[in-house]
Nucleic acid binder design. Structure first.
Lengths: 352, 352
DNA sequence: CTGAAAGCGCTTACAG
DNA sequence: CTGAAAGCGCTTACAG
């Protein structure tokens, strides 16, 4: 394997010139540059990673702290992991994957050994050990997600709160006065993930502000759990004309199936919004209005901010990505009120 | 950050003694060892990763080549990625995640820069660029999966062929003479993944050997695709009494739903085996007999073999993990033959 | 059982 | 615009 001396010899220059030519940290004569480039190509030279780490100030590696919990939804998790890896590569960084149960152990290890230049913290909990750790550790970090205490942290995430407000506002604009929300399973809230709470809080506040009736139901396991949650909503809101779903794809699929089974048409009988979804809602039947949760967006920005931290250009702060609303036809005007006493949705249960 | 000199000074020894004490590569006086251990603890010393990489012969990092393709099933993929990361940690290795589109680029990069000591190659295709690359590259590797040409490679995987044989044999033992197989969607076979082909080939051969009638159907998209595939099987095998499923969880779920809709009871009317499944089939209704595909098993062994390669103890070879059969009650004796002419399964379609 | 020292392959002041 | 050299923090013969 060729080293920098081989390249220097082949190009007829000193090793410092090779180093500078490669890093671009000082100007190099055009012919010199070309001879070096040529030598690098011919020899297939790549700087030795260890030497670079030792001599330089940078390792060109980021740690990605991505704990996989029992209830983690794999497709979304995967999307974020991939998005971080790809964003990092764009800045010529490689990604070291930290998945350990002991969330903080790996971070301390790579920090102390100077293996990485910085950390991306994924799926931060409201009261996350890792967030606390970042205060003590001498390592720039970007947190994807917003823990309860963001002091001293650089956090990036979709604005789930605004996304909820946007959903409710859209529906209120169309005359809906009774809006249900189908959330994640209860254990997702209990385990302390940050974003479901933010969405739910935003939903409740927006409903209060818009003076619409609202209710929230959290589905149990499987299609039966979703059915029960819908029952709960229809019971609490007999005149429910709109549904906001903030949950993973299988639940949304089950919910649409169940509505179909009950003979409830979207959007004629019920307007539906899929909020903060990291999957494609245009293949649903019917395609759903969506506020997309785009892993690439958060992760690109997160990595970008991490790089900026390394360059000392950015202070801790919270950066919320504004939600975007995409219409696909699943939201319509609220149906005219029915005469009191008659339940609009007979609630004919599916027969499974 | 404390370095080895600080530790040596604190312990009153030379730095080489510290280094040897930490690596265990030569015997150290008991008191000396204790003083060093004490100093390490007090100073929170961690060897600098770059210095270790440069001076030593090892980086303590593995690359994990885990391409995420459009049809990759995230939960299974995730399970393998996590299993590799956890296995690596057990040998004190960290994992660098390579996900790039250009499958080989990242491998060449980390190989040339000596960033990693070895590579785990995940989800290898039958004719995988990466397998070719491993021949040229100076880097030990373990491949999870079996490409068509395994020459010079160290490959580990569940024995999908044997798993298929085992499934058919079990059913044949119970008197089943007409066995269908529900496979993955066609595009999974087309894109060249190695394991679906191995299972299918094993199924076909075992069916021929056991002299049972057999048919294979590959589902299209969604529940409708699964329904059509089942139709196809019942058409090709009007007396089908057993079904082997080698596909991902959503398809198996849809298939069970569909059987239920058709009034077909498992195992009374139809015996069902879930083969090479990396998810829990005991929560299905009914719970399914399963030949589990355990990510930890393949990945532990893969990492172990990679470590052994580094120690120069192991030559290229293919290592197939024998399948295990777990009964859960979804396989029964074949029902008695019906009188010719009467279709056993009226095929009453679900009403969605 | 322990130490002094070379050397891994870079980066970066320092010097011109 | 370019070069000679120090130094990053380890590991590992070499020596005793």
């Amino acid at each position: 394997m060729a080293n920098i001396h081989d390249v220097a010899k082949a190009a007829g220059v000193s090793i410092s010139t090779v180093s500078y030519a490669l890093s671009g940290k000082r100007s190099i004569g055009e012919q010199t540059r070309q001879r070096i480039a040529e030598a690098v190509r011919e020899l297939g030279y790549r700087p030795n990673a260890g030497a670079r780490m030792l001599a330089g100030t940078t390792t060109h590696i980021f740690a990605l702290s991505a704990p996989f919990r029992p209830d983690t939804y794999a497709p979304a998790h995967m999307a974020f992991v991939l998005a971080v890896a790809q964003a990092a590569r764009r800045f010529d960084y490689d990604v070291l994957l930290l998945t350990e149960d002991e969330a903080t152990g790996g971070l301390q290890r790579v920090a102390a050994s100077r293996l990485v230049d910085g950390v991306i913290v994924l799926d931060v909990a409201r009261n996350d050990e890792r967030a606390h750790l970042m205060h003590d550790i001498d390592l720039p970090a970007t947190v994807i997600g917003i823990p309860d205490n963001t002091e001293g942290l650089l956090c990036v995430d979709l604005d789930f709160r605004k996304a909820a407000e946007l959903s409710v506002a859209r529906l209120a604009d169309r005359g809906h006065r009774s809006i249900g929300m189908l959330g994640h399973p209860p254990r997702i809230y209990e385990r302390g993930s940050n974003f479901p709470h933010r969405f739910r809080a935003g939903f409740e506040e927006a409903a209060a502000e818009q003076k619409v009736k609202s209710a929230i139901a959290l589905p149990g396991h499987g299609p039966a759990g979703v059915r029960d949650a819908l029952d709960e909503l229809f019971e609490k809101l007999p005149n429910m004309t709109a549904l906001v779903m903030n949950c993973e794809e299988p639940i949304q699929t089950s919910a649409l199936d169940e509505l179909d089974d009950r003979g409830i048409s979207v959007p004629e009988d019920l307007s539906v919004i899929s909020a903060c979804s990291s999957f494609d809602t245009s293949r649903f039947s019917p395609p759903l209005d969506v506020i997309p949760l785009i892993a690439e967006e958060s992760c690109n920005r997160g990595v970008e901010l991490l790089v900026e931290q390394l360059e000392g250009e950015v202070a801790p702060h919270v950066e919320l990505i504004p939600p975007r609303y995409e219409s696909r036809g699943s939201v319509g005007d609220a149906p005219l009120p029915v005469k009191p006493g008659a339940s609009r949705h007979p609630g004919q249960r599916g027969r499974r």
